[in-house]
Design a protein around this nucleic acid. Sequence first.
RNA 1: GGAGAGGUGGCGGAGUGGUCGAUCGCGCCGGUCUCGAAAACCGGAGUGGGUGCAAGCCCACCGUGGGUUCGAAUCCCACCCUCUCCGCCA
Length: 486
Amino acid sequence: MRHPGPRTPRRPRTCGAKVGRAAGCPTGLRRSGSLSGFSKRRGSGIRGQVQSRGLIMHDIRAIRENPAAFDAALSRRGMSGLSAEILALDEARRAQILAAETGKAELNKLSRQAGAAKASGDTAQFQALSESASLRKAMIANGEKLAADLDTRLRDMLMGIPNLPLAEVPDGRDEADNLEIRRWGNPRNFDFTPKEHFEIAGVLPGMDFETAAKLSGSRFVVLKGAVARVHRALAQMMVDTHVEDHGLTETWTPVLVKEEAMYGTNQLPKFAEDSYQTTNGWWLIPTSEVTLTNSVAGDILEEARLPIRMTAHTQCFRSEAGSAGKDTTGMLRQHQFEKVEMVTICTPETALAEHERMTGCAQAILEKLGLPYRTIVLCTGDMGFGAQKTHDLEVWLPGQQKYREISSVSTCGSFQARRMNARFRPASGGKPDFVATLNGSGLAVGRCLIAVLENGQQADGSVDLPAALHPYLGGKTRITADGALA
RNA sequence: GGAGAGGUGGCGGAGUGGUCGAUCGCGCCGGUCUCGAAAACCGGAGUGGGUGCAAGCCCACCGUGGGUUCGAAUCCCACCCUCUCCGCCA
């Protein structure tokens, strides 16, 4: 998997979708050609000429008004002050736009006059005006190009800057500085040494890494029999719970998406090497956050439609480029896994309440399964690129004697909405404003399977399964030591 | 994959080179009328950017990207997408 695969964006769609690791060269992806497609949704009024690209990732006006606050927020994420560079670029850009638009205005005026002259039959006047317009046109052409270039440069720069943490997020460098805010359930007392999931006798026949390696290589698994059934039951239970108890809308989405969707939810341009791209330019989603969130890209939603709360159960694909050697045994970290995802689109004012709600939805699954967990607030240094605030849920894994991440719930504020140009029209009237987007796992199915197996294991190698799953297992309640559902 | 049709503002639907950002209808908002509503009538209303204290002025946007022209929703080229029929297919 070391061939980055040449990018061949335009290819007949009939071509086989061979998958190669994404080229780790974001610059190749950032050309205005690929960007323009998505920045140019209907009505956003963007043209590669003089015209400003309009919507930008970070609110450039806010940066202009309070550069110190912007720098301070970024410094909490360990980034040095960027506002000076941004503002210099912004200033140059605006000056160039002004120059180009002034020239364009004069040209338009000459054209109108030429039209009038022609209409009145004044041929000499028409000639003169036409020539003078041609001259002016040549003069402004370069200015327009400069303006467009500066605009693209500013846009690209802002595209690469992470979201600003909310004030309430604790400062910190890495996971050591995260803050535990909730602990639920008591880890069970074992009268034997609990095994890791891939060591449990009853699990062995149903979890086949050798065959997976033969088919696909490392970090893949083949599930069989009872284990496969429990895995499927978990996903079903999660989706049903979110739909029936939490009121989310069940959604089924593609797992292959266009490049612009990957920009919208900030997998691109910075993290191209974490995902897979097909030879014809599609990307395999690393999470259905990509499809669920981008489903409102370019839209102006009526406020009455908000909040939109969705859930989807999909395959997810990740290259795990940065985690060589980490969690190599077992199925904790795979290139392909299933996840039930939750996404909410709402107004900015309701985002924090929705964040708590979504965290509750994820917690409810673990509680239903009786799995001990803790909830933590990620510190500034540990948060993902697009997040304003993140809750991680960590489930107790007796085999490792550790809490391990099983869900991550984030609010992105308007960060992704700006990238996607997703807005809502306030019920009170007034201009459209950017929506807020939230996403969270509810939950990672494979990791949940691990937790169920490890927490339910018995001394004889059998596994007791949570009551919440029994209806999804045809009334069966356990996996026997020889791997049968009983 | 083959053949055909088409992509215009929230929707429908005009517009084939010169104040067209775009006629008109529906829907929407405000007002008049009414006890109230409906109807009728009057008025308003796109998005982004630049500039300005502001009013305003200017630039861009009619699927996307190029081209022709003094001037393009209108002409040319390429691409994307949607629909219909045929073929194939889970």
